[in-house]
Computed example of a mutant assay.
Amino acid sequence: PEPAVRADAAGVLTGRVTSVADVAAAELLLVLAQGPDGPELHAVEATADGVRTEAVTPLDLTRPLGHLTLDGARGRLLAAGDRARAAVDRALLTGAGLLASEQLGVAEWCLTETVRHTAERTQFGRPVGSFQALKHRMAALWLEVASARAAARNAADALATGSPDAAVAVAVAQAYCAPVAVRAAEECVQLHGGIGMTWEHPAHLFLKRAKSDELALGSPGRHREALAGLVGLDAP
């Protein structure tokens, strides 16, 4: 899609970008803009004239978001044309690949915490984790987390080594790890029982992080669609 910011022939930037992570704390902004001859990448000082940020309440309160408005702001041109687009695409690919590792971390914490809690919480004189129904749910989640670990590490390795299959590895990792993190967090909340639904227990923080990560750099559906194009298959 065309960038939300436009640049005129003099490099003056105008436009609005919504839901930018940590924009209020940033000192330097990298802005992709549509210039007279194609895409341009500009570096803009956060304190420059014509730059305004507006804080918004995010789903994940541990990751602040804000809207960025540029009204006649000036920056420094870093790249233009195909070079600008390639730089942004590579940055987004790298970000999505590394985000899979964060999603893996969320899922691992949720599984570990759930196993610990169900081993300690007793009902009818025995740990609730010994009940077959809960054993099956945690075993199924363990298999998903193990597969997510393989996908996330494969994506990180492909990016680090400059593999030609990096785009495929990242699409697989995001399509798989994002829903696993959400499912692990949901199971963590449910299998903790009443305390899992309280504000005092941290389970809700992991669920909110998992849901925000699922949308941050493309939904699982978008990554499955990208994967279909990369491997020459019709998307569902």
Rank of each mutant, 00 (worst) to 15 (best):
C177P: 04
P127I: 09
H192A: 08
D157N: 14
L159Y: 03
A150Q: 06
A181F: 01
E200L: 14
V180A: 09
S219F: 13
A175K: 03
E144A: 13
A181V: 07
A185K: 06
Q190A: 13
Q190N: 13
E214N: 11
H201K: 06
A210D: 04
A173D: 00
V189N: 01
A181H: 01
E225D: 14
H204I: 07
R183W: 02
E200M: 13
L191Y: 01
P164G: 11
P127T: 11
C188W: 07
K208R: 14
Q132F: 11
S130R: 12
V182C: 10
Q132M: 08
V145H: 03
A152D: 07
Y176F: 10
V182L: 07
L205C: 07
A140K: 06
A155P: 06
G129A: 06
K208V: 07
L141N: 02
M138W: 08
R149C: 02
P202H: 06
A152G: 13
A150R: 08
M138C: 09
S147M: 04
L143A: 10
L143Q: 09
K135S: 15
K135C: 09
A146C: 07
G196Y: 14
G162W: 12
A228E: 11
V145L: 03
L143C: 00
S219E: 14
A155V: 07
A181N: 08
A167G: 00
T198C: 05
L227D: 09
K211W: 09
V172S: 05
A166L: 07
L191A: 04
K211M: 14
A169K: 04
Q174M: 05
R137H: 10
V172N: 04
H136D: 12
A216I: 06
G162Y: 12
Q132G: 08
G218K: 00
P179R: 04
S219K: 14
H136S: 09
C177L: 09
W199G: 02
A156Q: 05
R153W: 08
L227R: 05
G194C: 11
R224M: 13
L207E: 01
L215V: 15
P127N: 09
N154G: 15
V180L: 14
V182W: 04
R224P: 04
R137C: 00
F124P: 05
V128T: 12
D157T: 09
K211D: 08
W142L: 11
Q123E: 14
R209A: 08
V182N: 02
G218H: 05
S219T: 14
V168K: 05
L217S: 01
Y176P: 00
A166Q: 06
V128S: 08
A203N: 06
Q123N: 12
L143M: 07
R224L: 15
P202E: 10
A148W: 01
D157A: 09
